[in-house]
């Protein structure tokens, strides 16, 4: 299990055009997570969630501050599930799985098969992404991320492009896979219900990229939205969002 440590992270994007203002995407964020936790990062659109994940994964670099991901003191392996499937359209499902694998051909295949089976796509090895539905493509994306045996798994709103029913069944599958593997997961979403359903801990970001709130959710799995405790948790977090919006409105004058 990995340890993610973020200290005084700030990210500013340069202005695209001359005379434009630079965008402050993240402002002085610090938090730490480690072990078998499922942490959700919740916040309104544009508050810097994706930027944070990109920095954690090394795709982007911090402006100031430090991000370290370690696994028993060593550099940790990462898996990433994106908002869109991000599969190579010119490669088959199996080739897409092998693309991120560092194992030998045979082993890699066996490993990929195992994870494709977990998401119910054992029959789709030789298909191209274009032949799959959006939900199936996202399943491949999830299988791909799990298949590299990541120490830390990053997920960026993985279900937001899907219809509600597909999203629900994928959420349940994710829950099962997490219970089986107990990865350290950092999960980004704008959906409070999804966060309460899946995570042990919920970090809320505010507009402008600051941490607004950080709570733990101690409900037993599997969780049901009909459960009163669940509803109470959800209501509490939504209530804090209202406070946040009110503060923002007040600040805006």
């Amino acid at each position: 299990m990995a340890t993610l440590k973020i200290e005084n992270l700030t990210k500013t994007f340069h202005a695209h055009s001359k005379g434009g203002l630079p965008t402050r995407a993240i402002q002085d964020i610090s938090f730490e997570m480690s072990g078998q936790v499922f942490v959700s990062l919740v916040g309104p659109s544009g508050c810097g969630k994706s930027t944070l994940l990109n920095i954690v994964s090394g795709v982007d670099t911090p402006s100031t501050g430090t991000v370290t991901v370690t696994q028993d003191g060593k550099k940790a392996r990462l898996g990433y599930v994106f908002q869109d499937p991000r599969l190579l359209p010119w490669r088959t499902v199996m080739q897409n799985m092998l693309y991120v694998s560092d194992l030998h051909e045979e082993e890699g295949r066996a490993n990929a098969t195992k994870y494709l089976e977990m998401v119910g796509l054992e029959h789709a090895h030789e298909m191209y992404p274009g032949q799959l539905s959006g939900g199936m493509q996202q399943r491949v994306g999830i299988a791909r991320a799990f298949s590299v045996s990541p120490d830390l798994l990053l997920m960026d709103e993985p279900f937001s492009h899907l219809d509600a029913i597909t999203a629900r069944s994928l959420r349940e599958e994710l829950q099962v896979m997490w219970n089986a593997t107990k990865k350290t997961v950092l999960f980004v979403t704008h959906d409070v219900l999804e966060a309460v359903q899946l995570s042990n801990r919920i970090i809320t970001l505010a507009h402008g990229g600051t941490v607004f709130d950080d709570t733990t959710v101690e409900l037993p799995f599997p969780r049901k939205a009909s459960d009163p405790d669940f509803a109470a948790h959800q209501a509490e977090i939504l209530g804090r969002f209202e406070v946040m919006e009110a503060e923002r409105a007040a600040a805006a004058g």
């Binding site: 994964s57 090394g58 795709v59 990462l78 994106f82 991000r86 693309y99 991120v100 791909r144 590299v148």
Partner: peptide, 12 residues
């Protein structure tokens, strides 16, 4: 460029 980012995230 999103595919390139994916590639980088998976350490290719």
């Amino acid at each position: 460029t999103d595919l390139l980012k994916m590639s980088k995230a998976f350490g290719r």
